[in-house]
């Protein structure tokens, strides 16, 4: 007898909320990026939980693809962060207002 899926889903919801709050209150771009990773992991956890409760392999396949997309996203995002830092020497998201006019 394993723990019911509801507990896993609750934990995933809490993890997603913590990631969302962190994304909103932190202004360091790198830490905001890590908070996005937290939210992605929360979604992965709920995918695996649904895969178990519905006895369906599709949830685990989805997690596989989310992992690949997350890796690609991190590569491109960190490249953009490095480029921003080279141009304006800051990692604070509030300082990046070049488009504001």
């Amino acid at each position: 007898m394993s723990v019911s899926g509801t507990w896993y889903l609750t934990l995933a919801a809490a993890l997603f909320s913590i990631g969302a709050i962190g994304l909103l209150i932190r202004r360091n771009i790198l830490i905001m990026f890590m908070c996005i990773e937290l939210m992605l992991n929360a979604v992965n956890l709920s995918f695996v939980t649904f895969s178990r409760t519905l006895n369906d392999i599709g949830g685990q396949s989805s997690v596989f693809f989310v992992l690949v997309v997350a890796a690609a996203e991190v590569v491109v995002g960190l490249g953009i962060i490095v480029m921003i830092f080279r141009r304006s020497a800051t990692t604070n998201a509030d300082d990046l207002h070049m488009l504001k006019g």
Binding site: R52, T53, L54, N55, D56, I57, G58, G59
Partner: peptide
């Protein structure tokens, strides 16, 4: 809400 049909894309276990 998890009322989807089980094992539509294959059995997991």
């Amino acid at each position: 809400w998890t009322s989807g049909a089980p094992s539509t894309s294959g059995v997991a276990f």
